[in-house]
């Protein structure tokens, strides 16, 4: 089972790790990915990143992605937390944890989850630059290719 949350508040990776593994001796490995806000885009200083989402759809889309991962690998649990709202440079945006008996499944599922999340969950990022400019981030072909390789 995956714990899935969309929230404005920061998350505590250690607390999420502890919650996932509490009372479990069957887990042999946990994959972890944390996405954070880069402080510049091609050298242009970023002031903040605003994340918008489609509340009625987001958790359903994340649950569908988690179910796909559980169908492909033998997982013993996992966590997906995605933040929304205004985030400053270096702030954590997204957490993916995937637990399995062995590392291959844990690491592969973690990579799969973040690749699919980037192309199949209804989030949009707007960059606000230190020079006052604002830009909606455009989807990257490289992200589509990363999602398609699974």
């Amino acid at each position: 089972m995956f714990a899935i949350r969309v929230q404005e508040a920061p998350f505590d990776v250690g607390a999420e790790f502890a919650a996932l593994t509490a009372g479990r001796a069957d887990i042999g490995g946990i994959g972890c990915f944390v996405g954070t806000v880069r402080g510049d885009v091609g050298g242009r200083a970023l002031a903040a990143m605003t994340l918008e989402h489609y509340p009625a759809m987001t958790e359903r889309a994340l649950a569908a992605i988690a179910a796909e991962a559980e169908g492909r690998w033998e997982l013993l649990g996992g966590t997906i937390i995605h933040r929304v709202g205004c985030l400053l440079p270096a702030a954590p945006i997204v957490l993916v944890l995937a637990a399995a008996r062995h590392r291959e499944a844990a690491l592969a599922a973690t990579g799969f989850l973040i690749d699919w999340l980037k192309t199949k969950a209804p989030f949009w990022k707007k960059e606000s630059f230190a020079d006052g400019g604002e830009v909606w981030v455009e989807a990257r072909a490289a992200d589509e290719a990363a999602a398609a390789r699974w």
Partner: peptide, 12 residues
């Protein structure tokens, strides 16, 4: 129906 229109997604 609830119909939503949006740009290609950019989360993660």
């Amino acid at each position: 129906d609830e119909v939503a229109f949006f740009p290609p997604v950019t989360g993660g």
